[in-house]
Design a protein around this nucleic acid. Structure first.
Lengths: 332, 332
DNA sequence: TTGAAAGCGCTAACAT
DNA sequence: ATGTTAGCGCTTTCAA
């Protein structure tokens, strides 16, 4: 039987409200009293009941992390978990904890509204992959603090935070120009839908345009095989690019294997660079130069923003955080 | 302002306890009344306050997942998150949710005791990596339902659940013998401490012993480089093994690169096999034959056990779950 | 600076 | 089958 606030009050010779205030460091309580109460609480191994406290104070001390946790996501999207990791740490610093909640995009609006009505968390972090227009409406109308992680794929007033992909593109371009590369092929997915890759491309183009150069874009590449095929097509040309830049790790490994199968020297015959450091870029041979994005940091910053918003509900943001970092390796 | 149980009672023309019982499907309430109450609740978008319910019923509807969430764990140990993923889904089915809590082994006993006193969760899943003898004592003395995921590195009475690594070893051995391999070198970490690898080795040895064969053990291999070096040493021998079996993906990639650097044909000149399918075995060339362990399933089963234990506190277990699966690929 | 007392919104034992 | 009522263990307002 754990001791309650009544036990402490009795042992310290004061009322329960004094105990409550003393433990919450309320200004109205004398230092001497605070000390006495705390000593007694310590001695009796008193820990206030989180449930009673949450109930009375209408808080829950936790935030929801909502996304589509499909099977194998741990392997296929480790970034997601590094975001969660960072968020957990930031919340923990302030005594909050992170609740995981699985929702598919279609169910999210209803489920989230339920969760809000049930007062299960003080705030929500949602990954942009499940953000629909309908969900965006729910978020903006509700009075629950929230933050979308990742940039929405449509125009909307929701608060979001993302890695600055354009800046990552500029970083890549600066590096390539600095190393003397001029003819660049950029491999990305479907040009319309892959907004992340689009931002990266935009950043690269900006820098290249300053030198009156341009980046050749090869879209429709998503899978390992498509990456390999694209690399082969580039090799077959009379005038090859000097470097292939991939918008994903998977593509890069595809290219790498294709280049190696053709006996092309890397980076001599063809250089290779990719966005994202994980999961593959450092375990293949040669290791691939990469622009790394700090997802832990993004999770951290997102959680910090959410905490601020919990205490200051009007706060809004649509912004980028965390600067990308370039890791030069053998492939360039 | 969300509607409360009083609003529903008033609108349905009954008492709050009838509402409570009706919504909780209590046997003593007439079907007709249940229907009426539910209809009213639906209409008023009533959702019972999770906080009030938790407080009144002395439950919290959530389980804690505790481990050392170090930076980059998302990339370096995706298994951990696939376990979490599975656990989240199993809990969600029963209306529970998963709370992530970061603890280092040294702080875990104190922090966990705090969390228990604060009644923050109905149960705890702990990863074996943070399990010390002291923590084991705390768990066994406490009356909080718990389950350790992974086999403890020491002899103890705590309940745990793990993948059956011996069975995985037997599976690997059966496959190799079936393919005609007889001379096997098994690479693993420190023989004393790497209990997972030890179990795998034990399973392999059992099967080989039945054929009056034995597995050569090469210990002290943990890193990529050590894997590469071990492979080179094996190549330098007069009588080479026919196949190298690695107890980790990292080792296997090290071996693979060493073999390729020497121009050895895989699997003709030397075959290669590894435990764990992720993260690397299918993205290198050639793809490596692997014994895959279903971590999602383990998380699922662990959570199911925890739920049972929450309702039946005396339940105990020290057992294995999830059968490993062999994925034959190009390297054997 | 302290204490009394009124909730917070449910559950569950008990009475009807 | 339904209602009454006493908590659950705190926070917070208001009075002293």
């Amino acid at each position: 039987m754990p001791s309650s606030i009544y036990d402490i009050a009795r042992a310290a010779g004061c009322s329960i409200s004094t105990v409550s205030k003393a433990l919450n460091d309320h200004y109205s309580i004398a230092e001497e009293t605070k000390r006495r109460v705390r000593a007694v609480a310590e001695e009796l191994h008193y820990q206030p009941s989180a449930r009673a406290r949450n109930f009375a104070s209408r808080k829950s001390g936790s935030a929801l992390f909502v996304t589509d946790f499909y099977r194998n996501i741990g392997y296929e999207n480790p970034h997601m978990f590094e975001i969660i990791n960072g968020a957990t740490h930031a919340l923990e610093e302030k005594g909050y904890s992170l609740l995981l909640r699985n929702m598919r995009a279609a169910d999210a609006p209803a489920l989230l509204q339920d969760a809000m009505l049930r007062e299960q968390a003080d705030g929500v972090l949602l990954h942009a992959t499940i953000l629909t227009k309908q969900l965006a409406m729910v978020l903006m109308k509700a009075d629950l603090p929230y933050l979308v992680i990742g940039r929405p794929g449509f125009s909307t007033g929701v608060s979001w935070m993302d890695v600055n992909h354009e800046s990552a593109g500029r970083l890549a371009a600066d590096y390539l120009l600095d190393r003397g590369y001029r003819r660049v092929a950029f491999l990305l997915g479907n040009a319309r839908e892959d907004t992340i890759a689009q931002s990266r491309l935009k950043g690269m183009n900006e820098v290249f345009a300053e030198e009156a150069l341009s980046v050749e874009t090869i879209s429709g590449c998503l899978t390992y095989e498509e990456g390999a095929r694209a690399a082969e097509a580039l090799l077959d040309r009379a005038e090859r690019p000097e470097v292939i830049v991939c918008s994903s790790n998977t593509l890069a490994v595809g290219c790498l294997h294709a280049l190696r199968a053709r006996g092309v020297d890397i980076p001599g015959g063809m250089a290779l660079m990719t966005f994202d450091n994980y999961p593959f870029s450092m375990i293949v041979q040669p290791q691939i130069t990469a622009v790394d994005l700090d997802m832990y940091d993004m999770g951290w910053e997102a959680a910090r923003f959410l905490l601020r918003r919990i205490h200051k509900p009007n706060l809004q943001t649509q912004s980028f955080c965390t600067t990308p970092r370039l890791i030069a390796r053998d492939s360039t």
